[in-house]
Amino acid sequence: MSESKLQTPGAFHVHAVDDEPEVREAIAKLVRVGGYEVSSSSSGEEALGSLENRKADLVVTDLMMPDMTGWQLLRQVKQRFPDIEVIVVTGYVPENAHEMLTNGDMAGYLVKPVNLEELQILLKGLLFLGNLGRQAEALIIDDKADALEAMKVAFERRGIFCDCYTDPGEAMERLKRSPVDIAVIDYRLRHADGFDIAQRLRSDPETRYMPLLIITSSPTTEVVQRAVEMRIDGFVAKPFDPKVLGDRVIQALRTLLST
C-alpha cells in the first residue's frame, strides 16, 4: 500500500465477508460510517475471486462460515495477497480466544455484535503506522533484566524507541509524565500482577485504547479469558523469537488511534 493511499479513509478499501446477508450488510454500513470504501462477499471463495479482480486494503471476515472458514480464508489471503490485512469477527470467544491472541497474520479481531467504536479504532489504526510521521514509542515492564534487553533490541530493530522498567511503579509514573504508543507487560512480576497493571491502564481515559501485550510462558485458559475480557491485544510467549516479537508489536500498533 502506498503512503498516499494510507492518508485518508476514502482511499482505503475494505472487503467484508460473511455468509449471513444481514450481518454482512451491517458490517458494511459500519465501515461506511467512517468514510471507507467497502465491498462484500458471501463466502471465502467469492472473496478470493473478488480480490483477484480488485485488491482491497483490508478483509473483515466472519470465522464460522460453511465451505471455507475464516481461518482458512485468512491463510489464503496472506498466501496470495501478503499486503492485505485481515480482521476476524467471531461470536464464540472461548473457542477461538487463544488463536485470536497469538495469530501473527491477523490485524485484529472483533466480537459479535460488532461495536462501531471498536471497529473504527481498528480501521483508524491501520492508517496509523503509515501516517505517524515520527518514531513509535513503547514501554516494557519486566523484572528480568536480560528479557528487557532482548525485547529492547527486537523493538529497536523495527524502529521503535523503548523505555524499559523492572519496577511497575516507576513505569506508571513514566506514563503519567508522557504517553507511549504501546505497552508490553510481563504477566508474572515478582511484586505485581501484570493484569492488574493492564486493568489500571484500561481504566484510565488517557491509556484506555493504548495497545497492550502480555508476556507469558504459559497462556492457560484462565489467562486467555482474562486477556480477552480486558481487550489485551496479544501475547508474547517466552522464550520469544525476536522476529515474531517484532511482528506482534507492529500488529498491535495497528490498533492505535491516529491523532
Rank of each mutant, 00 (worst) to 15 (best):
M64Q: 15
R75E: 10
V86I: 11
V88D: 06
M68K: 15
V77M: 09
R75K: 15
D62L: 00
E85H: 12
P82C: 12
M64S: 15
Q72S: 14
H98N: 11
I84N: 07
L73E: 02
G91P: 00
R80Q: 14
L73P: 01
G70V: 05
F81R: 07
P82A: 08
M68N: 13
G70D: 04
V88W: 03
Y92Q: 10
P82W: 14
E95Q: 15
V93C: 05
G70S: 07
Q72D: 14
P94Q: 13
D83N: 15
M64C: 12
G91A: 15
I84S: 05
E85G: 10
M100D: 04
L73D: 01
M64N: 15
Q79V: 06
K78G: 06
F81Y: 14
I84E: 04
Y92S: 03
V88G: 09
D83C: 12
R80G: 08
M68P: 01
G91K: 04
D83Y: 10
M100P: 03
L73W: 06
D83V: 14
M68F: 03
V89Y: 01
I87C: 07
P66F: 07
V89E: 07
A97N: 11
G70H: 06
H98D: 09
E95G: 04
P94A: 12
E99F: 02
P66R: 03
L74Y: 02
Q76K: 13
G91Q: 07
E99Q: 15
T90P: 10
M65P: 14
P82H: 11
I87D: 00
D62R: 00
I87W: 04
M100I: 05
T69A: 02
E85T: 07
D62C: 00
A97C: 14
L63K: 05
H98P: 01
M65N: 06
M68C: 05
Q72H: 02
I84V: 12
E99C: 01
L73I: 08
Y92H: 08
L63V: 12
M65S: 11
M64A: 15
Q79Y: 00
E85N: 14
V86N: 04
I84Y: 03
V89F: 02
V88Q: 02
A97D: 13
M65F: 09
D67C: 11
Q76E: 12
M64R: 13
V93S: 11
N96L: 08
P82G: 06
G70I: 07
Y92M: 08
F81C: 04
I87P: 01
A97I: 02
M65I: 06
P66G: 03
N96A: 13
E95R: 13
F81W: 10
M65H: 09
V88P: 00
M65Y: 06
Q72Y: 00
P66S: 10
Q72C: 09
M65G: 11
E99A: 12
T90G: 07
W71F: 15
I87H: 05
E85C: 06
Q76T: 08
N96K: 05
P82D: 08
L63T: 10
V88H: 04
R75A: 07
M65Q: 09
P66C: 13
